[in-house]
Nucleic acid binder design. Sequence first.
DNA 1: GATGAATGAGAGTTCATTCAT
DNA 2: AATGAATGAACTCTCATTCAT
Lengths: 222, 222, 222, 222
Amino acid sequence: MNVIEPPFNPPKWTRKPGARPEEVLEAALDVFALNGFAATRMDDIAKAAGLSKAAIYLYFPSKDDVFKALVEQRIGVLQSHFDAAAKEQKRDPVAGLRHVARMWATSFQDLRVAALPRIILAEALRFPDLAEFYHRTVIERTQAALVELIQAGIDAGLFRQVEPLLAARALVSPLVFEILRRQAFPAHNIGQPMEVLVEAVFDLFLNGIAAVPLLPSAGVKP
Amino acid sequence: MNVIEPPFNPPKWTRKPGARPEEVLEAALDVFALNGFAATRMDDIAKAAGLSKAAIYLYFPSKDDVFKALVEQRIGVLQSHFDAAAKEQKRDPVAGLRHVARMWATSFQDLRVAALPRIILAEALRFPDLAEFYHRTVIERTQAALVELIQAGIDAGLFRQVEPLLAARALVSPLVFEILRRQAFPAHNIGQPMEVLVEAVFDLFLNGIAAVPLLPSAGVKP
Amino acid sequence: MNVIEPPFNPPKWTRKPGARPEEVLEAALDVFALNGFAATRMDDIAKAAGLSKAAIYLYFPSKDDVFKALVEQRIGVLQSHFDAAAKEQKRDPVAGLRHVARMWATSFQDLRVAALPRIILAEALRFPDLAEFYHRTVIERTQAALVELIQAGIDAGLFRQVEPLLAARALVSPLVFEILRRQAFPAHNIGQPMEVLVEAVFDLFLNGIAAVPLLPSAGVKP
Amino acid sequence: MNVIEPPFNPPKWTRKPGARPEEVLEAALDVFALNGFAATRMDDIAKAAGLSKAAIYLYFPSKDDVFKALVEQRIGVLQSHFDAAAKEQKRDPVAGLRHVARMWATSFQDLRVAALPRIILAEALRFPDLAEFYHRTVIERTQAALVELIQAGIDAGLFRQVEPLLAARALVSPLVFEILRRQAFPAHNIGQPMEVLVEAVFDLFLNGIAAVPLLPSAGVKP
DNA sequence: GATGAATGAGAGTTCATTCAT
DNA sequence: AATGAATGAACTCTCATTCAT
């Protein structure tokens, strides 16, 4: 694996007919989620997929490509959900934001899916193009959707004059944080379901912690 | 390196006289921060330290141990800052929280320090004992300090009846998020200094996004 | 493929009806000529033949056997040309030798034919039985024909008392050399046609380079 | 090994002090000569050198580079001999040519050295840059030296008006041919020493085969 | 007759670790 | 204390060969 990566050109790997490639990715998700990228051997993936190591190379030209294909496959699905959710609720920004936040909770309930952001974070430096892809397809689009909703809320006088991008991140980051935390420190997971957390986070996001408005500011225009 | 780790028994590597071990860790931080754990070779560390590869083994019994020692060394320093900051300001919870938040910004301005949480996150599964150590000495203590301040604020009627732990995370996570984001997606860094971000985050944390208090709730008691 | 080869037992591969085996050999010649034996994959041959890789195994039991069959097939053709040429011209040894030399030029004009000696040379050590076959069917018979002509010339007083075998090689080797050279160093090919070269080589062969006979010798009797 | 090679930039591999690299090349020559490039495994070279496979990589970055270094080392030596020999004998072209021819015989008496041209010929298509290197450093310079001598002979009226390059090849090719023949068909080697062959070849080269000058022509101007 | 799918047995290469000096 | 030299044990990737369909 090289540190330097060529620009990311989505699917180079050609899918053979049949479900095999998907099975391989399924298996790969399991092992990558468990061990991370570098520590996962092709043999592990093969064994998990019930195939020989060489068979993997029938479907994907390299380990890197297995990983990339996996990310593309899983992320693409995720990402479209958020998009859709955001679009349909511009009328009621509060409900829209809440909806997106809840969707997060649902989507990442599956621990194996939740592993992807962690892995990407871990390997971002060595897969800059993959990180870029993730940023473009997930982060930017989610942010854009949230920003749109927040801006609509501001325009409608529902929200203060905060910086929308910053507010979007303030909403999302506790959720991301929780996802990462649960994986990295599993011993410290109390059973609290994500749904409950989402509601509390959303309440704080809307109302803040202060008992009475504590002025004066209203976000920073960078 | 095995996926399964023995229980974490702090420093088993015995420090030889002289400053050499510290120099090695200094060098190790550089390269781990740059390439992550797996992609860093002992040769890289050695070269960065101006030593031969074999010399590293005079001070640390293995690559894993270099990594662990590094985390231990750096984390201790970090952690004590927050502790101190929190303690001295119980009188004015708002000022206290703001102080802690600002200290984050300052501490992690140094990119090599900022790399630590990312690396630990990335390698947590393969170094569970190290993750545990980090959780215990940094996360728990920071949380404890924040919770104390928040609880004081609630008791003083300054804050709403939120769940203090959750609120603490709501304050910290946008900052952590930003630290991780900057490292993983350096191409998307606008030059905004952390200080500015901290103030904005803190404002949102205190006041929320809503123009007028949007009601009832006040956090969730899990 | 082993370095040690069993004794050469001509065609063990049984031809199935239809022209398929010939088509495979045709394709194999193309790719072997282009890449040599080791670097040619069964997949390459299959693709060139418009068949699946597995189908090749219907006709030939192994890659080695494809190669052997190919050489056998092609060599036979080559060899018979020279034979014929030599036989019919014993009356006029000079014309006979010239005729054979010209036939070389013609036969090896086809690059795919010219590739054979190079490939055999390259793989001779790993296919000693094949090399032996080539030596027996091509080299020895060509030499024999030339030696016969040369001896006839000596007997007729046309040629000096040279060692016929050596003289035969002296005539043939510049031509072989040129064939190999053109393939190995294609960048250094000037467009000169083989025909022109043959005439010049033959002139040198007959008359030597010296302006006046430079005595004294007349070949070596080993 | 790739079919496409970057341009040949002589020694990239940095020699470590001590005789190790030379020992490796010595061993590599043995195995390459025996099995050719593709069929030689790094393990073979290592074993022949009394080292572990990994140790080879301390001195040479890849198998390709071992081969290239070997060729450079051996060929460089050879080639300078011819150069020197040719230069010092421009006064007496016949003696000069004879001297160069004899030097061939001597240099390639060592069968392992004689293997190099064969291997290069065999692998030329996959190592075009190496072939180019060989052509430039050995073939072209040898030819140039011979051409110079031949031209001097023509100018002095000693030689006929032949095409010097062609004549040069006519002299060299029987010797090359013999070198290749001995390796490819070892079963057909009679014990004749190269020296004897060289004298006979040289006689033919000078005087031709014809009993009386058979006239007209005098080489071809392409 | 033909093939898509699969694999076992390597190949070259890397790297944490060791050890004689 | 320090290192140059060496290696064993991986690892990724390749390919001739097989076989159920």
